[in-house]
Amino acid sequence: MEKGFTVWFTGLPCSGKSTLAQMLKDELVKRGFKVEVLDGDVVRQHISRGLGYSKEDRDENIRRIYHVAYLLQRNGIVVITAAISPYREIRQEARELLKDFVEVYVKCPVEVCMKRDVKGMYKKALKGEIKNFTGIDDPYEEPLNPEVVCETDKETPEESLQKILRKLEELGYIEPQVYSEEEEEIIKKRLEDLGYI
């Protein structure tokens, strides 16, 4: 059985967590891993239904996420979580329980996140229609020692993905892979056109 591990994305709303989580999932699945994504928005519709956005409720939400992650991880599943998880203390709890834990800080200035505002939540928060919205009237505590920092206002999603993959390789969670199948075909074609193979 493959060893499970958890990649824990954290960052402001609209910083790019879900996009990167999905890209990472696709890549790891291609490499033969069993992968489960625990997306914050989806979790709140199911296992955390009814919880609000007070600090207590947020912490409870994260506890549920890391507990599910723990169950999956110990069965050899790679878990990718994509929730804001704004508080350091609760992320530390997750790290301590999960142990094989790779924290990815999806860093993006709040102004840029507000411009993205995929679901119009920032707009609502600014109008006061949503309370305790991270980055507006609720704090986000930056990770102090994340394994990876992805600066999504400066990097392309592909660059961020490569950063994460290299760190996972470096930490020994995944085997270094120079080429995907598609890339290997590209290189073979290039070498054929040059008369090298």
Binding site: K154, E158, E159, Y179
Partner: peptide
């Protein structure tokens, strides 16, 4: 190398290459 994002150390240096329109190899086809 197949893409610029995977062609540099440190990885973030690939941004410089992209900005300047660097070319890994002319297409021999």
């Amino acid at each position: 190398s197949t893409k610029i994002e995977k062609a540099t150390y440190p990885p973030e240096f690939s941004r410089v290459l992209k900005e300047m329109g660097y070319i890994i190899d002319a297409n021999p086809v």
